[in-house]
């Protein structure tokens, strides 16, 4: 939607410029074309420069749960979707599939996209 409106804006603005400069040779209509060209230019540029609508924004990133093996020598790590009841440092019932040690939730987090400065 954002790209479509920007593209549409460029077309309208260019049409406005064309009408403004080439208009009509008829003295009665030329002033009307002049005003129409200005209006089209401003509408087109508004569409090009306007920000994306809030509704078009992406949904929030999913929350994930990172589970790690408690054995410091084991590197097993599992990342899955957050489930209600998960919290950081919660001991898990399941054992590590690699070394059979206990496991703990190491983190519950989201990975946010960087906003342009």
């Amino acid at each position: 939607m954002g790209l479509v409106s920007k593209f549409l804006g460029i077309i309208i603005a260019v049409s406005g410029i064309a009408i403004l400069f080439f208009g009509s040779s008829d003295p009665v209509w030329s002033f009307g074309y002049y005003i129409l060209g200005l209006i089209l230019m401003s509408v087109g540029l508004t569409l090009v420069t306007s920000r994306q609508d809030a509704k078009d924004k992406k949904p929030p990133p999913p929350t994930v749960t990172e589970i790690r093996c408690d054995n410091p020598e084991c590197t097993f790590k599992e990342i899955r979707d957050f489930q209600k009841g998960d919290y950081i440092l919660k001991p898990m019932d399941a054992q590590c599939p690699k070394c059979q040690s206990s496991m703990t939730i190491h983190g519950v987090y989201v990975v946010r996209e960087e906003e342009p400065e």
């Binding site: 983190g107 519950v108 987090y109 989201v110 990975v111 946010r112």
Partner: peptide, 11 residues
Amino acid sequence: AAVGVMDKKIL
């Protein structure tokens, strides 16, 4: 980030 779900970079 302070009031929202913890960000990976903070963790």
